[in-house]
Amino acid sequence: MSTINAAIRLSSRQHPQLARVTQIFAMLVWWYAWDALSRALGLPIPGSILALGSLLLLLLSGCIHHSALRLGADWLLANMLLFFVPAVMAIWKHLPLVRLDGPRIFAVILISTAMVMVATALLVDMVFRLSRRREAQRAVAH
C-alpha cells in the first residue's frame, strides 16, 4: 500500500488534474463496489455507509495516506453545492406540496441538519481527543 500512496503523491505533484480525476474515480469505484456488495448480500446498511466506514478504517490504519485522496476529496467538497441542484429543481416541480406541507418539511430539515451537525461535532471532538492522547503517549514513550 505504501507504494500506491507514494505513486499517487508523486503523480499529484506532477499532474494535479490527472491525480484529481483518478482520486475521484477511485472513490466512485470504492462506493460502487460496496453498494453492489450491500445489494447482493441484502444488507440493511447502504453501500455508501459501508464504503465510507471502510475508507475511514483504511485511513485510520495507515493503509491509505490522506494525501492519496486529498485532491479529489477537496474538489468534491468545493463543488458540493452542484449535487443539490437536482433537489432544488424537484422542489420547484412540486410547489403545491411544498406550500401545503412546507412548514413540516422545513422543521424536519432543520432538526435533521442540527442532529447531523451535533453528531459530526461530537465525532470530530472524540477523534481530536484520541489523536491528542496518542501524541501524548508517543511523547512519553520517546
Rank of each mutant, 00 (worst) to 15 (best):
S2C: 03
I4R: 01
I4C: 10
N5E: 08
A7P: 00
A7Q: 12
I8R: 07
R9Q: 12
R9A: 13
L10K: 15
S11Q: 13
S11K: 11
S11F: 05
S12T: 10
S12L: 00
S12Q: 13
R13M: 10
R13N: 10
R13T: 09
Q17D: 15
A19R: 05
A19L: 00
V21I: 07
I24R: 11
I24V: 12
F25W: 11
F25N: 05
M27E: 02
V29T: 09
V29D: 02
A33Q: 04
A33T: 10
W34T: 09
W34P: 12
W34F: 15
A36P: 14
A36M: 13
L37I: 15
L37D: 00
S38F: 09
A40F: 10
A40N: 07
A40G: 13
P44C: 13
I45K: 01
I45G: 07
P46C: 15
G47C: 09
S48A: 14
S48C: 06
I49T: 15
A51N: 07
L55I: 07
L56V: 03
L58S: 13
L58F: 14
L60E: 09
C63I: 10
I64E: 03
S67V: 03
A68M: 10
A73Y: 08
W75E: 09
W75C: 03
L76C: 10
L76S: 02
L77E: 04
N79S: 04
M80K: 14
L82V: 04
L82S: 08
F83Q: 01
F83I: 05
V85N: 01
V85T: 11
P86H: 03
M89W: 08
M89G: 05
I91G: 10
I91P: 01
W92D: 05
K93A: 15
H94M: 10
L97K: 04
L97Q: 08
V98S: 05
R99E: 01
L100R: 13
P103E: 03
A107M: 06
V108H: 11
A114D: 05
A114H: 06
V116Q: 08
M117W: 12
V118G: 08
V124F: 14
M126G: 04
M126P: 00
V127K: 06
V127R: 09
R129L: 04
L130K: 14
L130N: 12
S131N: 12
S131G: 09
R132F: 01
R132M: 03
R134T: 10
E135P: 00
E135Y: 01
E135M: 03
R138V: 07
A139C: 01
V140D: 03
V140W: 07
V140I: 11
A141R: 14
H142E: 08
H142F: 03
